[in-house]
Simulated assay, not measured.
Amino acid sequence: MPTELLYRDDATLQQAEARVLAAGPEGVLLDRTPFYAQAGGQPGDAGWLRWADGEAIVTKAVKGPEDTVLHQLAEGATLPPVGASVTAVLDWGPRHRHMRMHTALHLLCSLIPGAGVTGGQIGAERSRLDFDLATPPTKEFLTEGLNVLIAADHAVGERWISEAELDENPGLVRTLSVQPPRGAGRIRLVRIGEEAAPVDLQPCGGTHVRRTAEIGRVEVTKLENKGKQNRRVYLVLGE
Score class of each variant (00 low, 15 high):
Asn230Phe: 12
Pro43Ala: 07
Gln179Ser: 14
Ala39Trp: 03
Ala23Glu: 04
Asp67Arg: 07
Met1Trp: 11
Asn147Lys: 09
Leu49Pro: 06
Arg32Asp: 04
Val233Ile: 02
Leu172Val: 09
Glu158Cys: 12
Glu66Asn: 08
Glu168His: 08
Thr33Gln: 07
His106Thr: 00
Asn225Glu: 10
Leu223Thr: 04
Asp67Thr: 06
Thr138Arg: 14
Val62Trp: 14
His106Asn: 00
His154Asn: 11
Ala37Cys: 03
Glu219Lys: 12
Val156Cys: 12
Asn225Arg: 13
Val233Ser: 02
Ala134Cys: 15
Ile122Met: 03
Gly40Lys: 03
Glu144Pro: 13
Gln15Tyr: 13
Val86Trp: 04
Gln72His: 02
Pro113Tyr: 08
Leu90Ala: 09
Gln229Thr: 13
Arg186Lys: 12
Arg182Val: 14
Ile192Gly: 05
Ala197Gln: 11
Ala104Gly: 01
Arg191Asn: 05
Ala74Gly: 05
Phe35Cys: 06
Gln72Ser: 03
Ser85Val: 10
Glu26Trp: 05
Val86Thr: 10
Val58Asp: 08
Arg232Thr: 07
Asp10Tyr: 11
Arg8Pro: 15
Lys226Asn: 07
Val82Cys: 12
Ala213Val: 09
Glu163His: 06
Ala213Glu: 10
Gly47Asn: 04
Gly145Tyr: 11
Gly47Leu: 04
Asp67Ala: 12
Val82Phe: 10
Val117Thr: 03
Asp167Phe: 09
Arg100Ala: 03
Val89His: 05
Gly47Pro: 00
Gly54Glu: 00
Val62Asp: 15
His106Asp: 04
Ile187Arg: 07
Leu237Phe: 02
Ala151His: 06
Thr143Val: 11
Pro94Phe: 03
Gly93Asn: 15
Met101Asp: 05
Ala88Glu: 10
Ala104Asn: 00
Gly47Glu: 04
Asn225Gly: 12
Arg182Ile: 14
Ala61Val: 10
Arg231Glu: 11
Arg188Ser: 09
